[in-house]
Write a protein that binds this DNA or RNA. Sequence first.
RNA 1: GCGGGCGUAGCUCAAUGGUAGAGCAUCGGCCUUCCAAGCCGGCUAUGUGGGUUCGAUUCCCAUCGCCCGCUCCA
Length: 503
Amino acid sequence: MGKVADLMDRLTSLCKRRGFIFQSSEIYGGLNGCWDYGPLGVELKRNVKNLWWRDVVTSRDDMVGLDASIIMNPRVWEASGHVGGFADPMVDCKKCQGRFRADQLYYAVRQGQSRQGGNASVGFSAIADKAEDALVAMELQLKKKGRQIREWTNDFELIRYDHRQSEQTPCPACDEKGSLTAPRAFNLMFKTHVGALEDSSSVAYLRPETAQGIFCNFKNVLDTQRLKLPFGIAQIGKAFRNEINPRNYTFRSREFEMMEIEFFCHPSQADEWYQYWRKARFDWYVNLGLRSDRLQLRDHEKDELAHYAESCVDIEYAFPFGVSELEGVANRTDFDLKQHQEYSGKDMSYYDDQSKERFLPYVIEPSAGVDRSVLAFLCEAYTEDEAPDDKGLPQKRVLMRLHPKLAPIKAAVFPLVKKDRMPDIAHKIHEQLKGRWNAFYDEKGAVGRRYRRQDEAGTPFCITVDGQTLEDQTVTIRDRDSLAQDRVSCDKILGYLREHLGN
RNA sequence: GCGGGCGUAGCUCAAUGGUAGAGCAUCGGCCUUCCAAGCCGGCUAUGUGGGUUCGAUUCCCAUCGCCCGCUCCA
């Protein structure tokens, strides 16, 4: 365990040291769950988003983009189920630390006994949507304890949890009486007010997901883009969740960025497209350098499925702190369009003029966390190996083996030493490169030190102007991972990089 | 949100109820012809706010943040 924490520590330390990721508002002590991307981090993150956009939008014929607003009409969140489902009052057990929805907590109390002095005799508690289900749950509990059902069903009365009677309510998990806290509301949506008046009529929310902006614009996109099913709408943007407990570096943040696709299709084709996207999205990560044996597809169990989803799979990565979700691919059926049709009163159906059929499309949703991808790429890239020093002795080396397409800096240009016109030539090469790629120039200090700095930044190639350059117009190009150097003619540098960077 | 641990320089770590040190990094200079060399010099810290005290980085309280375990994760 110490080793795991250690690895994350070394990674976070490097990210700070080299300018990948900083804590938000650090000079004021930071803010839990919020992070800033530094000069290297912003390049990495932008590369992730650009590659995603290119792969799922611009290189396809069946996808268009969208950039919806973060603050939307609050009724959107009533339709989506976020307001109702997430404002639930919760109670905690102080003994076993269990947490339960107060409106789903039932308990059984023996009738009449409380009037005879003393506390009412309490049987069991259970969590259920309805009272009947609570009875069933309690019967199961009793059976487990080897008692007869008849023994209590007649004598006990089922009561919905009321905090004023918390003294006699046993915890559904540990049976301890009087250990439950007062109900508290947990809504993961950030609330704000639109306009100058801060009253209940002006309440609005920061979106907790980008998906609803797509659903709300389904008709607009359909009407303006001459699209036919199946097609998708893609969006990259910030979302906000007031997480109870942000943890694991940038993995669970309160402000985060998502890359989401809503792919609309005929209900009969939904499963086919679901299968397509779960594979396509898995392969995307592998192609950008995540090792497939650290990635897995995990199908949700039936009882784990969200209320809107028919099927759902998580693409999970083995982070140092545990296997965690990068992206979910879900078959959301027609749930969302149906909800918005009902709440807005606007028709959301699609008319297929070939089959003369009118229907609500099903939707497959690949929903990825940008920050989580970035973190996975960083974890995957972090490597410690050994490289020889100037005396040939092996020294520890830290490098970020980022895929060249993801690397913040594509190439660094160095004069071997700061004399003999070497800086002039190196400057010219840098000028040539920086119009096309993010390239970096450095002439200070020993060249070995400059190489090591670029290793930590994940720069795949270092181009060095040396004594031989002055004679035959060639430079060396050093590979980050192998340390091997190719000697390349100055006029072939662009071609070399194009070939090796893959873009 | 609960329980436990922890906050000293950019990073990693010392020390102390009475002047806060080191290594590395960084910056400037010298020197350097291929992988963190060397020398000289510079910048940089007790998370924040209260309290106790003649004096607090040290003790106490609060707060913010981080880590671990639980919890949560439409």
